[in-house]
Design a protein around this nucleic acid. Structure first.
Lengths: 311, 311
DNA sequence: TCGTGTCGATCGTTTATGCTTATGTATACC
DNA sequence: GGTATACATAAGCATAAACGATCGACACGA
């Protein structure tokens, strides 16, 4: 048989006739004339090269041939597929069902993202949200371009030809000190002179990370050569070390937990070149409504959080 | 989205464009003009209510939108289904693959059917043959009309409105005697007077069986009231009992094993109303080539066997 | 910055296909 | 044997799908 001549109309007619038992009944169900159904079935039989119905003649119902029974099963499966495709597409269009896959990195994951996800869940309870975390922008971009995630946070400054980027906000680097430590006593104000960190062993992140806009790059830009007492990729671990008195840490503001009574947060003077938080999607690619919802909520939440944290 | 407007042409275009990356490439692959592909995709997007491709413009390839990716998966699954449907239909048409389900009853199963099945296997090695055995015609007919078997043997005489029947042959009732017994010595010729069975306990089948055309009906038609020393539905068991000297048995010729040296076969005089062997299919129903092949082989083999057995 | 080439979209036209009405044909039932 | 039922077929019409030609958008190179 030759596939190219086959058409969904044929299969619809096959199903209708099989269900109704007569061409006339099928025509009625399909809102067509009997002649149209007759032609559809004839076309189908031409396409498959075999009869699909036995027509006993007279007022008796037509019956499926073996080929017809075989084809009918496939017709049903195809119609089922189309039906589920339709609901999936509706889910996609509604933005309240289906899937949303988000790329993220740690300092965003810690504080900002949980609240954003919570709000997205509230707006779209049946949306299946999955998160993929990487430490480097490049890995996130790879996932994005490969299509395995819909949208990703990126640590700026960052630019890429294949991406649509939007700036969520600027996340300044702040200094975390043990609340009861000597340094906190020595600098009781909101500000902390950055040069004073020259000789103090720090708690910090592993290098290299995020390329430009890193803490070390910032410090070096100010002529400082930082030394480290402890390094970790985990922001929570860094904050814990600060609390334990291992040393001060420079962290992005949004990566800190300001409610921790064991630490105090100081503004660096002069400030380090800050990192920005960006959202990226594939350049020129249509976004799902779910992605749009997420991006909108993320932007709003990020601004609110930065405004609150700086207050 | 609205299913009724969807068409396999749309899905084919979707797949081609997704594979080729450009409308022009897809048009080339589909042997269509670029304009036609453009219109197909436009029609598809109208049907699903969303864009399925992002057109970046200029000499860059188009890319799937989320909706397009979703739809493409379904399109592929549907095309796969159609492809396997096509091979299944070809198998069906060729008669050398696929399935063949045959109804049978015991006296046919014992001698005739194994040889027929062997020949069908030889003619169509990849055909999957399944057998369903019942003792009564009615059960076989039920299976046939329900569609669970393609064709069935029936014990005639038998008639049924909903069936196409064909006579394979007449299977005469013969007498089996122990080869070394007193009866065989008393009747050394090929024939045996039926009345002589009046007072002899027989080996035979359970009653009732097959309605008309049974052994008991035949004997009663000759004014005899048979008594039984042993009864079984199993023809082999009956023949075994004869061999063991339990008594003579009246059996259909084709149910006997003439090669058994422990028994001799006699023609009854006068003969009992014989049973016929028939093949039945659903009335007016198209048969698969496999079924036709089987029926042809069965007819040939049955004739050959009867001719041989009577010789 | 301005051609230039590559695409996709669109227009107008032609062709093919599907649907309709009307009629023909075959079979069952009375 | 006539009538009713149901599918097949034919002719006409409308839609749509195809084509060639053209337009407009974008990227790239000079």
């Amino acid at each position: 048989m030759s596939l190219p001549d086959l058409d969904l109309r044929h299969l619809r007619a096959l199903i209708a006739v099989a269900e109704e038992g007569t061409f006339i009944g099928a025509a009625d169900a399909l809102r067509l004339s009997q002649a149209a159904v007759s032609q559809q079935i004839a076309g189908l039989e031409r396409a498959v090269g075999q009869r699909v119905f036995d027509r006993p003649g007279g007022p008796r119902p037509v019956t499926l041939t073996p080929a017809g029974r075989l084809l009918l099963q496939y017709a049903h499966r195809i119609m089922d597929l189309l039906a589920t495709a339709a609901t999936d597409l509706n889910d996609l269009a509604s933005g309240t069902r289906g899937r949303l896959s988000i790329g993220t990195y740690q300092s965003v994951s810690v504080q900002l993202l949980p609240d954003v996800v919570r709000q997205v869940r509230q707006a779209a309870p049946d949306l299946l949200i999955s998160l993929i975390e990487h430490d480097r922008n490049e890995e996130l971009v790879d996932e994005l371009l490969a299509g395995s995630i819909d949208v990703t946070f990126l640590a700026g400054p960052y630019d890429h030809d294949g991406l649509d980027l939007s700036l969520l906000g600027t996340d300044p680097f702040v200094l975390l000190l043990p609340a009861e430590g000597e340094l906190a006593r020595a600098h009781p104000g909101r500000r902390f002179p950055t040069e004073a960190l020259a000789e103090i062993p720090l708690v910090g992140e592993h290098e290299p990370q995020y390329g430009a806009g890193t803490i070390n790059a910032g410090l070096r830009g100010l002529g400082l050569r930082p030394r480290y007492a402890f390094r970790s990729y985990d922001n929570g671990a860094q904050q814990g070390m600060v609390r334990a008195g291992v040393g001060p840490a420079i962290m992005p503001l949004l990566a800190t937990d300001p409610s921790d009574p064991g630490i105090v947060i100081k503004t660096l003077q002069p400030p380090l070149e800050p990192r920005t938080i960006m959202l990226a999607t594939r350049k020129g690619a249509t976004r799902t409504p779910a992605t749009d919802t997420f991006m909108q909520i993320a932007k709003r939440e990020c601004r609110a959080r930065l405004a609150r944290a700086r207050a």
